[in-house]
Amino acid sequence: MSEAVTQTLNIIKSNKLIAKYDKDARDIFGFWVYLMTDCVLFASLFAVFAVLRHNTYGGPGASLLFSMPYALVETIILLTSSFTCGLAVLSAQLKHNKRVLFWFIVTFALGASFLGLELNEFHNFIAMGDSWRRSGFLSSYFVLVATHGLHITLGLLWIAVMSVFVLKRGISDLVMKRIRMLSMFWHFLDVVWIFIFTIVYLFGAIRV
């Protein structure tokens, strides 16, 4: 009798657990779909860049403007931040609150320095008179890279908010789910950057 009761209770408990897991999986899937639509947004910007890349209108072209080592440093920094963000998820999975915070801070610092480098690059171009007003090519360069930068800014804001959550509420199921989503967002931004690095900077350097 008592065994049968515990059995039933177990089943009810498991059903609830399954329902909760399913809901989390649904939320994460929804976020994935959003990321995929964001890919199309970036693809449109890439298409514009590809079409306008030679429309320099007497201004400088890609090979003249961009410094390759600078772009490489940016890339490595962002890639490393993607890795540390993964480590934060790993720590969260093991419920190490402090380690999660540590990796969040590292990720934030790396992301912020990436953003700083990007803004510095923009500043240098503008100071030389090569702003987005200069030519169709520069318009498309600025907007493509700045859209990525805007996403990074939102990501940084999100990391800050999540850190407060971890600090105040610990790693509840809800917080865990959101950390997973945040890491998806951050990795996604690195994925987009692969193509910016290749198409804008490397293809620019070899004058495609």
């Binding site: 514009v48 306008l52 429309n55 320099t56 007003r133 030519s135 169709g136 318009s139």
Partner: peptide
């Protein structure tokens, strides 16, 4: 003042 679709300035 970007030049994506303008007639001049390298827009298309």
């Amino acid at each position: 003042g970007t030049h994506f679709f303008t007639a001049g300035g390298g827009g298309n």
